[in-house]
């Protein structure tokens, strides 16, 4: 128990997060880049051609990782929001601030790659399918979170955003469920993929590698923003001055 709390306190301290975060960032960056190269070269050049979709299915190696990530990042932010509301750990606010725009971009990317994939397979860029629609709503949830902060006085904005995210995360399953109900009520499966054979390993292994790579890269990106935000917030603190002084010889 004591160890856990110690761990908790250490990751609440800005200099520790800043310096240890640098190591983690390096690790994530290297691992993410290597895995992405491996997954993409394997997936794009060596994985077999899909017998129904031809080569167009290969966008899966970008689309599925970002779609996974879009939802995971929201969950991660909501968890950080809970930490901020319950334990009032200030670092959690910065984690949210660092993650929000990244999550929004990733969600947008998931929608765009999905649309690009939809054109050759379904014959249209967009259908009001349950999954597409709930993804679009997720994008709006991200944008709402981003828009709230600048509208509020800065001392309360962090916790307000956190509360919004926590309520949003409770709503996500309800939204998903209702959208699925709505979709099955209204349209038959006209534009669904037809029966697809289970993926052979030569397709799903590079896919899993790409997903892992994307998570690592997201970790890299979030840490980059988090450390920059820390430096900005703590620009008067001794450790921050020392680090900048050392690095840039000021």
């Amino acid at each position: 128990m004591a160890r856990t709390w110690q761990w908790f306190h250490r990751w609440g301290s800005p200099p520790h997060v800043f310096h240890a975060g640098r190591q983690w960032q390096l690790g994530f960056g290297v691992a993410g880049f290597a895995l992405l190269m491996l997954g993409w070269v394997w997936g794009l050049a060596f994985a077999p051609v899909d017998y129904q979709q031809g080569n167009s299915y290969r966008i899966i190696f970008l689309h599925v990782p970002v779609a996974f990530l879009a939802q995971s990042l929201y969950m991660a932010m909501a968890a950080a929001g809970l930490v901020l509301l319950v334990w009032k750990m200030k670092i959690a606010d910065l984690v949210i601030q660092a993650t929000l725009p990244i999550g929004a971009v990733i969600t947008f990317l998931a929608l765009v790659t999905g649309a690009i994939w939809g054109k050759p397979t379904w014959g249209t860029y967009w259908v009001w399918d349950a999954r597409l629609t709930s993804m679009l709503i997720l994008l709006f949830l991200y944008l709402g979170g981003m828009a709230l902060r600048p509208a509020l006085p800065s001392d309360v904005a962090g916790r307000a955003v956190a509360l919004l995210l926590v309520v949003g995360v409770i709503n996500i399953p309800i939204i998903k469920y209702s959208v699925e109900w709505w979709n099955t009520l209204h349209q038959g499966a006209t534009l669904k993929l037809t029966e697809r054979p289970a993926m052979p390993a030569s397709m799903w292994v590079p896919l899993v590698i790409s997903i892992l790579a994307m998570y690592c890269l997201a970790g890299f990106w979030v840490l980059q923003r988090l450390r920059t935000l820390l430096l900005l917030r703590e620009s008067k603190a001794k450790w921050a001055r020392e680090w900048v002084g050392e690095k840039y010889g000021l």
Partner: peptide, 27 residues
């Protein structure tokens, strides 16, 4: 409530809460 101290809340309110309304609209 979240927007209570905001100076220009009305445009933002829709962005914040309309996505949350969706289940009710659907049903």
């Amino acid at each position: 409530a979240l927007l209570a101290p905001a100076r220009s809340g009305s445009g933002l309110l829709g962005l914040l809460v309309l996505p949350l309304f969706i289940p009710i609209l659907v049903f």
